[in-house]
Design a protein around this nucleic acid. Structure first.
Lengths: 218, 218
DNA sequence: AAATATTTTTAGATTAACCTAAAAATATCG
DNA sequence: CGATATTTTTAGGTTAATCTAAAAATATTT
């Protein structure tokens, strides 16, 4: 039975592995968990003993297949709870993360699978991130950053990169919601800001925002 | 912010206070939490510092008003989650306790209150125990043990005293469910076992079982 | 490639939540 | 009521998860 801290480290390693072929660095994990490097080193040794990761001194951490499955199960729970909070309990997508961080640690296979069934086997969480199925399989959809589109191209808003509360509220205010259709109308030369067509209206967003918005080309 | 252990101690003190006018004893708490007396002594000092209980050496623990409200909030969450598990996720009443023990520690006022709303503001959990409302108010119903009824008296099954999984499964097997109408037909002299009329059928149960079944007289 | 900078690990402390063994206080019983 | 039993506390130890400071290894830069 894993502790909350062990689970959080695994999850962190999983997320940091995505854009990283080699081992995940001690410092990166420490930063993502808001702890210090020595604490992470201790934990890496423990996770290695439990065969959840492979770890050699100074070489960073890599998930084993067992560790990967374990991490995916935690992420599955996190995202299912997020769906529950938004669809059944009137939470906004900007306020689910903190609560899901707690709920993801509840241990009960039956709970997870019944929740999945109750929600109708959702494949995406409220931020557009894919939900691993019971076997740990993730259905990725090809998506690009809004900032990668050229003038005249159109995309459908399918997810956010940084799902911080502040950014999600920013999107709410501008009525940019998952599923919105976005067309690049113009790119400002001097600050790279984008003029976009959003469903029926037009607006302007910064390059920083465009770097946080995932779309599928249409 | 209270730790899980602090919350569990509070809950234990609350439950043990029910049939106890004086302070709750260290040993009783230790037994209910499956820890040892010295661990409880440590925790009582801490809870006293936090003004959740009053505690004098050798005198046992008494909840303050603040401690009582805090304990009731944990119990409220526990019982709401039990309702959720049974009504929405197909759990049996004999398997909800363990999971609710975890879920009761999730910290989010909004979650608790939205869950309450989602469930239609239930007043009883699946074992017939009352659910405190948001203000910590509990609506007690007058109930007696089945073993307190005399021959010829009738009662409606409204709750269990010991809600151990084994006892709940025993009730399931005999189709004794919350809401069942029970009539005392005969009491066996030599072992105090009861012959009862249950809805349309008759059966015999031990005095030990009758001591675990709450009914309202009808 | 040597010097410097950065990262990571080791060493040793701290805190929370538990424990055992023994001492102290309270309760019970003849 | 005094002896004995029980309960509770104290004293001191353990483990998990954190920390700081310093040492060691790796990476970068000139």
């Amino acid at each position: 039975m894993l502790s909350f801290s062990e689970e959080n480290h695994l999850k962190s390693i999983f997320h940091l592995s995505i854009d990283q072929k080699n081992g995940v660095s001690t410092n990166a994990i420490a930063e993502s968990l808001k702890t210090k490097a020595p604490s992470v080193t201790d934990m890496l040794k423990k996770l290695c003993d439990k065969e959840l990761i492979t770890y050699k001194k100074y070489q960073g951490a890599l998930l084993t297949e067992y560790g990967r499955k374990t991490a995916l199960n935690i992420i599955r729970k996190h995202r299912l709870w997020e769906v529950f909070l938004v669809e059944k309990l009137n939470f906004n997508w900007s306020e689910v993360h903190e609560v899901a961080e707690q709920l993801e640690h509840i241990k009960s296979q039956k709970l997870t699978n019944e929740l999945d069934k109750f929600l109708g086997y959702p494949t995406k969480d409220p931020h557009g991130d894919p939900i691993p199925n019971i076997a740990g399989f993730i259905k990725y959809t090809t998506k690009v950053l809004l900032s990668d589109l050229s003038i005249g191209e159109k995309g459908k808003f399918v997810g956010v990169k940084d799902s911080s509360s502040a950014f999600l509220k920013f999107l709410d205010k501008r009525k940019i919601a998952l599923g919105s259709n976005i067309e690049i109308l113009h790119i400002e030369d001097f600050d790279d800001s984008l003029h976009i067509g959003l469903d029926e209206t037009n607006l302007s967003i910064s390059i920083k925002s465009a770097n946080n918005i995932y779309v599928t080309k249409i």
